[in-house]
Design a protein around this nucleic acid. Structure first.
Length: 290
DNA sequence: TGCCAGGAAGTCC
DNA sequence: GGACTTCATGGC
């Protein structure tokens, strides 16, 4: 991968299988702001990033060469061969091809575990814009100031220790609703190490999925999202209402149980389940599949 | 106004 | 063990 220093930015030319807008707006990320066409402010990994894509050129405006290499290339999953992933998925069947083609610039972001845990507990029974609002409130109140753009200030996502100081009432004030008690429970169990990130990396997928559900408010769907987006388990296959709709349409042709769909995904997509899921989810949601 | 949202837990039988 | 209900909040 060729990385260059321009007058105003660190630049990567000839990026493939990547579209900044699709990758941010496909439903996996909740901390971005669109400035202009394919130009964004992103908050991740404790940094505020100003980034823009023009064709196959990706420009990082407020970053160093070292940060691009050590933080942003891994974050955007840019050192993975998505051409190979797409070939493998297209070998499985000819039904997923349309979704891959329409959403071909999606990559799975490598986000932080604790942030994904809290974010996806919030996500249950909520629409994406509202999830983003609540995560922004949490960061403003408990995160650290990391920069501003156009007079708007940005804040990092808090650590478990800091967010652990919030009470159920605090989460209610931030409009988390009935999830407030789950959030308190999650912080507590992370702080006292009933669940820790390191052990999840060492467990196999099934074991990790079971373990993460010790947290009150984390079930199979939320657990899979955390493993996929926060622990890098690409075999994870979260099934929400949109995934159920698109799978019933493409693979079952009738109403199906979640358990059946989960088993099908494991057998059919295997280690590529997470990628398949994201192409299908974004396709279904963006096209309002009923 | 009623229905739904990247669901999970509680409660019934 | 499966089906049904409840849980806040906001957008349409």
């Amino acid at each position: 991968m060729q990385i260059n220093i321009d007058k105003t930015a660190i630049v990567i030319d000839a990026v493939e299988h990547f579209d900044l807008k699709q990758t941010l707006e496909c439903g996996q990320c909740f901390r971005y702001e669109c400035l202009d066409n394919n130009e964004y402010i992103i908050v991740a990994k404790g940094y505020m990033l100003h980034v823009k894509q023009e064709g196959d050129r990706l420009s990082f405006y407020n970053s160093t060469m070292e940060e691009v290499q050590s933080i942003w290339i891994p974050y955007f999953d840019l050192d993975r061969d998505y051409g190979e992933i797409k070939r493998r998925l297209n070998e499985k069947d000819n039904l997923i091809g349309e979704a891959i083609e329409q959403k071909s610039g999606v990559r799975i972001l490598n986000q932080d575990f604790f942030e994904m845990l809290i974010t996806f507990i919030i996500s249950q029974n909520k629409q994406i814009p509202h999830i983003m609002q609540i995560v922004a409130r949490i960061s403003e109140r408990y995160g650290e100031y990391i920069g501003e753009w156009n007079a708007k200030k940005y804040y990092s996502f808090p650590t478990p220790e800091v967010l652990g100081q919030a009470t159920e009432q605090d989460f209610l004030d931030m409009k988390a609703g009935f999830r407030a008690k789950y959030l308190v429970d999650a912080c507590r169990r992370i702080i006292n190490r009933e669940l820790c990130e390191e052990e999840l990396y060492q467990m196999d997928y099934e074991e990790a999925l079971e373990k993460i559900q010790i947290i009150n408010g984390v079930g199979e769907k939320v657990g899979n999202c955390v493993l996929l987006f926060g622990i890098g388990r690409r075999e994870a296959f979260p099934i929400d209402v949109w995934m159920a709709r698109i799978m019933e349409r493409l693979y079952f042709n009738k109403p199906a149980k979640k358990e059946e769909m989960q088993a099908f995904a494991k057998e059919h997509f295997g280690e590529y389940g997470g990628y398949a899921q994201q192409y299908l989810f974004y396709f279904a949601r963006d096209n309002r599949v009923k």
